[in-house]
Amino acid sequence: MSDKMIDVRDLRVSFGAKEVVKGVSLAVQRGESFGVVGESGSGKSTVLRALAGLNHHWSGEIDFDGVPVGAKRPRAFFRKVQMVFQDPFGSLHPRQTIDRILSEFLAVHGMDDMDGRLNRALEAVALPQSVRFRFPHQLSGGQRQRVAIARALIAEPKVLLLDEPTSALDVSVQAEVLNLLAHLRESRGLTYVMVSHNLSVVAHLCSRLGVMQHGELVEQLSVEDLRARRATHPHTRELVELSRSLETPV
């Protein structure tokens, strides 16, 4: 087994005639947390969706755990790789109870011990058992995002793909969810790829990051280098400057 969990080489995605991801290559080590930052339209979410198998029209090579994957993913793939979306309001079925939402994956994959798995998943995200019989609208935004994370965890995946997992949340709730994600990664040895426009959130959760601009990955660096102002690409410097100037109160 190689120690690369994810290996992407020359990934290209086009919508119609417009190429939105222009040859992105990156590798994420097993157990590593890799962040992707960039402005809207830079192609960062498109990269993540291609990784997740949500976009079938890409070219290049993507390996997960040393195994190349194609456009359409086999069922076993989703036991290894799961995704958490930005908006907990939009990503949970409004007319299904949490119980139903969480058990769907288990049913599809014919997994046993449904009850135990459900309870363990809820426990992992620090939600009480009582939420199983609630509907999404009866939960707060933070609780909903925990449900979304629990749904991803129920597959017992190796990789979590996180698309702006906290940007729809209040800062106090964001702190809770970020702590939760950090603990889960440590205790389960998960590999993360997180997309965010918030540099300080990425720096908090990730050890390495890539900066995207106009569909290209213009720089990859460690968070240490980022903090020590060793970024070399002008766009990275711009983002750092902006983040610094806005995060400190006057």
């Binding site: 800062v171 702590n179 300080s200 908090h204 903090r227 995060e247």
Partner: peptide
């Protein structure tokens, strides 16, 4: 703002991740 007295205001400021001051755990309000 940096001299905010109310614990709620302090808590809101404190739970933000920061680029310059990394912490392993963010303080929760």
């Amino acid at each position: 703002l940096a001299q905010a007295k109310h614990p709620y205001t302090q808590g809101l400021l404190n739970c933000l991740p920061s680029l310059d001051h990394p912490r392993t755990d963010l303080p929760v309000l």
